[in-house]
Amino acid sequence: MAHAIEVRGLTKSYGDVHAVRGIDLSVAEGEIFGFLGSNGAGKTTTIEILEGFRTRTGGDVRVLGVDPATAPLTWREDIGIVLQESEIEGELTAIEAVTVHAACFAQSRNPEEVLELVGLSDARDQRAKKLSGGQQRRLDLAMALVGDPKLIFLDEPTTGFDPSARREAWDMIDNLRSLGCTVLLTTHYMDEAQLLADRISVISHGEIVARGTADELANQVAAIPRITWKPGTGPAVPGRFGAALEKDRMVIETHDVVEVVHELTTWAKAEAATLDDLEIARPTLEDTYLRLIGQNEPDAEEPS
């Protein structure tokens, strides 16, 4: 498959500070790629290098087949960028803001259609400064879409959103798929990456610490399934189960879930013990993620 983004051994240093330490990325055409990491992990530095806003120290970068560091302006015809902190001219209405932005491109979509696409048709004549936070981010997206891009950079599109606004934003991003756009989405929310991204790379302290689909990521960290319940009346669970009390719940960690559950319930029935609120759960991806970036924590700030 052709690649919209190819990165090999990318590094970026500011003096002795190594913000990006040799990362590889490849984003296929038409996929939504999640680039996940906490603040200061090197996420924004990397994306700004890909956008052509920053120079790199080393490595090879190709975005739509072109090196962003030396790309001509026409390269930007096919790229849409939603910046993390970029206000819209407050005195312009939504439709005016999209129209004037469309004029930056040789070929562009119809501004009315783009507003429709992001669900802002009703607010078309409202001044940008009067729009709600969520509406302003939609307008951001509309402006990124109006140039009819092949590749869209979305830098933390839902940071600071309330839950319902996040959900709306997610629907919209998911819709980009139908436009055939490739999307590079950065986020520090695992659930966001899990829901939207076909593939995910996790960056921590300037290095990729995990990559794959959401399911593959979950498997990368030895994610031991947990059987838990609320201890009730009746006899205590025998030691052979290896159960431990965590907060108010008994927990057994095991890979052999079926066997252990069978033994446990057989014992409980025989002894008339209660297993209230019995649950079998795999660690959430959020747990996995925290463990992943935790693993890379020690002495990572040391300049190499």
């Binding site: 302006l73 206000e87 819209i88 932005h101």
Partner: peptide, 17 residues
């Protein structure tokens, strides 16, 4: 104002000369 609000950065991300 446009520089501080990110308006210029957004423009620079387009092919506008």
């Amino acid at each position: 104002v446009r520089r501080e609000k990110g308006v210029l950065k957004r423009l620079r991300g387009t092919p506008l000369p």
